[in-house]
Design a binder for these strands. Structure first.
Lengths: 171, 171
DNA sequence: GGCAATTATTTCAAGTATAAAATAATTTCC
DNA sequence: GGAAATTATTTTATACTTGAAATAATTGCC
């Protein structure tokens, strides 16, 4: 089979001849993805080089730092948007490192509360300061207006995605 | 994912009382991430349910579909922004599935060219049509102006991140 | 021509991630 | 009170992912 090369069509022609073309949305998605990978790879590298910690562990600790009373595993799973089984393993490793501890949840023997240990909190606070500065550095090329606009558009994209997910649950 | 509750400070107060605060950039990063996870999880689910394929495999095939002459593994690694070892395994599995084939690269006995098989191309084309429609559906809540603006801002973010990565290589 | 540096890929160990099934406890509701 | 449904977590199997080291081939340069 021959592999057709893209024809050089301008936007006008596109609309007329390819009414169901959604290359724009596809490009938008790919750019969002590449932006995320670029930033994440750099943050991962800096966390490793400076603090010898992985990004998933840092992210989990960040959630716990905001919840001094501790969190249930399911809560962590929801906030981090990852599966339950994933959290089980991550918490295991962080507990083994002495950065977290588990304790039974009051009033519910199914659940456990996980919280930062004193060492975990101390560690996290130090890392978080650097992390915040890195993120600021990474977005330094955007002014306040850009950031506000990007925040709003991403919010709109999230809402739109949410709707598509609810609507097309059986798709 | 969660957008922490805004403190009731106006911009002025913020600047005065929290000169080195970069919570805005942090929130922006977290929103970008959650947007990506939300969309990716849904696309992954639909690919699995409709075509019984994983997202990484689909993404790899998408690259090859654009390169009828085939691609070298390193080229795939760059385009997909993943490690070399990752590509080796993915290609192994896709070859085992009969969707790809490897052949020696001309003029370079270190390298190999990977390309879609006829079946792989047929498969991919069918999946790609659905995939494109899903992405369009997911971004349907954004009008053309929103999409253009988001595209531009993400481009700016990428450029900014790139600069930070080059500048802060030893950070 | 030949040796050092680079490039392409694979291998390896560890960790991260998912989906689905299993386990255990709680809640609902009659 | 007790069965059924729900919820919280773990387990399992498999796949994906990374970073670093190893292997193999090519290129650059004297």
């Amino acid at each position: 089979m021959d592999d057709a090369v893209e024809l050089p069509l301008d936007a006008e022609t596109k609309v007329i001849e390819r009414p169901n073309d959604h290359k724009d949305e596809l490009r938008l998605w790919l750019r969002l993805l590449s932006c995320k990978i670029l930033i994440e790879t750099e943050i991962r590298r800096r966390l490793r080089d400076n603090f010898d910690i992985t990004l998933p562990r840092f992210d989990l600790m960040a959630q716990l730092d905001k919840a001094p009373a501790g969190m249930k595993l399911g809560e962590l799973s929801q906030r981090l948007m990852v599966s339950n089984g994933n959290i089980t393993g991550l918490v295991d490793r962080l507990v083994a490192q002495g950065l977290l501890d588990r304790q039974p949840a009051p009033n519910d023997r199914r659940a456990q509360l996980v919280k930062l240990t004193a060492e975990g909190r101390r560690n996290f606070r130090a890392m978080a300061a650097s992390h915040e500065a890195w993120i600021a550095e990474i977005f330094a090329g955007l002014n306040a207006g850009d950031r506000t606009a990007l925040m709003r558009l991403l919010g709109k994209a999230k809402a739109s995605a949410h709707k598509a997910i609810v609507d097309g649950a059986n798709q």
